[in-house]
Design a protein around this nucleic acid. Structure first.
Length: 227
DNA sequence: ATATCGATTATCT
DNA sequence: GATAATCGATATG
C-alpha cells in the first residue's frame, strides 16, 4: 500500500510545454505520480491529488479517440498546442479531463481516470455531495480513509471533486501555476506501473493504453481480476 | 461478489 | 436520431 506524501505547493513545480509535446503513450506513463492542482480563487485552500491512472488517446489513427473523425469544434483543443485541458461532457451527466499532447497540429491526449487525494479532502467531498462527518474532537476528518476513493476514482468523479467543467476549464493551459488548474511534479517517484486495455470504449478496445500504479487503492474500476 | 440498467444531453450522421 | 473515454442504484448468487 503506497503511502504517498503530501507536498506544500511551493515544492510542486509545473511541467513544461515540451513534456506534453510527445506521443500520448509516453506522456501518460510519465504523468503517473504527478500532481493535479486546483488553485481556488479567494479564501479556500488549493486542492491537490496524485495522478494514479490515465489512458492515452492517439491521433486520427486511433478509432477510439475523439480525434478519429478529424478536427471539429468540440475536439479542437486536441489538435492545438500541447499542455492544454480538453474537457468533454459525456452521457448527459459527466465531464472528463484530458491534456493535449503532441506538437501543435497533431492530435493526441491523455485522459485522467483516477487521482489519490492529497489535500482539500473536505472540499472534494463537498463537491461530490458526500457526507463529511467530524469524528470526536478533531473537526476536519472525513469519515474514514477507506471512503476516499469515492471522491476521485473515475474520470467523472475526479472532475466533480475538482469542480472541473467544460465552461470553466476547457482550453486552459495546464502548465501555468498562475492558472486555476495545473499539473506539477513534487519529486514523487511512481513505482509498479501497469498497462492494461482502456476502459469503457467499444472501438480499439484491445489496445493496452491504460496506465496505472499497481496496487494503488484509488485506481478506478473493479478489483484485481485473477485470470 | 458481479451484472444490468436508467439517467440525461452535447455532438455528429 | 443514435451514440457516448460514466456513475450510482438495484437486482441477484
Amino acid at each position: 500500500m503506497p503511502e504517498s506524501q503530501k507536498s506544500p505547493l511551493s515544492a510542486i513545480h509545473p511541467l513544461s510545454r515540451e513534456f506534453f509535446a510527445r506521443d500520448p503513450r509516453h506522456v501518460a506513463r510519465q504523468l503517473l505520480g504527478k500532481v493535479l492542482v486546483r488553485a481556488n480563487s479567494r479564501s479556500s485552500a488549493p486542492l491537490t491529488a496524485r495522478i494514479v491512472e490515465v489512458e492515452a488517446y492517439l491521433g486520427e489513427e486511433d478509432p477510439a479517440a475523439h480525434a478519429a473523425a478529424g478536427r471539429t469544434l468540440r475536439n479542437s483543443v486536441l489538435f492545438g498546442p500541447p499542455g492544454y485541458a480538453y474537457i468533454y461532457f459525456i452521457y448527459g451527466n459527466h465531464y472528463c479531463l484530458n491534456v493535449s499532447c503532441e506538437p501543435e497540429g497533431k492530435a493526441g491526449g491523455v485522459l485522467f481516470r483516477a487521482l489519490e487525494p492529497l489535500s482539500g479532502i473536505e472540499q472534494m467531498a463537498k463537491a461530490r455531495g458526500i457526507e463529511v462527518r467530524s469524528t470526536g474532537v478533531n473537526s476536519s476528518r472525513v469519515n474514514s480513509k477507506k471512503d476516499w476513493p469515492k471522491l476521485t476514482s473515475g474520470p467523472g468523479r475526479l472532475c466533480e471533486a475538482f469542480g472541473i467543467t467544460r465552461a470553466r476549464d476547457n482550453g486552459c493551459d495546464l502548465t501555468k501555476p498562475t492558472g486555476s488548474l495545473w499539473i506539477g511534479d513534487d519529486a514523487y517517484r511512481a513505482r509498479d506501473i501497469l498497462t492494461t486495455p482502456r476502459i469503457g470504449i467499444t472501438k480499439a478496445a484491445d489496445m493496452p493504453l491504460r496506465y496505472l500504479l499497481g496496487g494503488n487503492p484509488y485506481v478506478s474500476g473493479r478489483k484485481i481480476r485473477t485470470k
